[in-house]
Design a protein around this nucleic acid. Structure first.
Lengths: 135, 135
DNA sequence: CCGCTAATGGTAACGTGTTTCATTATTTCT
DNA sequence: AGAAATAATGAAACACGTTACCATTAGCGG
């Protein structure tokens, strides 16, 4: 069967949200993005921002991480699994290579587990924020 | 000044919560633990469960991970940092050795970051749950 | 242009977790 | 032991991020 296309309509909001997210190099929350859109004069509902952000994440067009109970998003072209080095202060993120997947599988297997997924994020302070934090 | 001891009182609830957590080999949520205590006839407020669980985590006597917006706790004697292999189905967890810390520091340094902490958890299905899931 | 219906958006509802504050109970002091 | 001092408790209120509801708007194919 050919791809059973989902009936998806292209709306102004969807485009706005997508492009707004793409101009961010940092991880941003739905609320932050919503606020930015408001500031830019765009009228987009918060619910829509959440919807689209989740849709992007689901479709593999955005990465998400959770910091302090809040889900953050970041545009991301590559679908494949990857990890981040995230600045806790400004949200700047760098994609990094994962640790050995073999090692993980081995550890899991030796405990009778079958891996479904894993979470690996390194948090720290980027050079700029370190400088800013220095009194 | 010598260590300014915190005036902490030993209460029945505190002991109950602590011992209940210690009998669990799985990660449990505050709510789950609260419910279990209720079922056992103990009368403990949910707020207290949260307080004590957080106190234990803060004191290094419990580990916490977050799955699906929910914070889970697990008793843990060792204070030092470690990671888990967690069954997504039943919550059973196995402590595992961390990946090379040197590697992380190196990756961070090459991007100008200074590591504050990292998150690394492997999720999967344990042997029992795999068996149970087989139709 | 018309009709179908996906998408929107304001708001209410939800779930998790924290805070408030009056009450309870442990510890200390005498 | 009894009383005073004050941690700790617990029920309810609150804070916050996120989702559900649903009437309205607006793509898109005919």
């Amino acid at each position: 069967m050919a791809a059973p296309q989902k009936k998806t309509r292209s709306t102004a909001q969807k485009a706005l949200i997508r492009s707004a997210l793409e101009t961010e190099t940092r991880f941003v929350s739905a609320k932050q993005l919503h606020r930015r859109l408001e500031d830019e004069g765009a009228s987009v509902g918060l619910a829509t921002v959440y919807r689209q952000l989740n849709a992007l994440a689901r479709g593999g067009d955005a990465d998400t991480i959770t910091i302090a109970e809040t889900q953050l998003f970041r545009a991301c072209s590559q679908t494949e699994h990857h990890h981040h080095l995230v600045c806790e202060r400004c949200g700047t993120a760098v994609e990094i290579d994962p640790p050995s997947e073999d090692w993980m599988r081995q550890v899991a297997a030796s405990n009778g587990f079958e891996i479904t997924h894993h979470v690996f994020e390194i948090f720290g302070l980027c050079a700029d924020c370190r400088a800013a934090a220095t009194d």
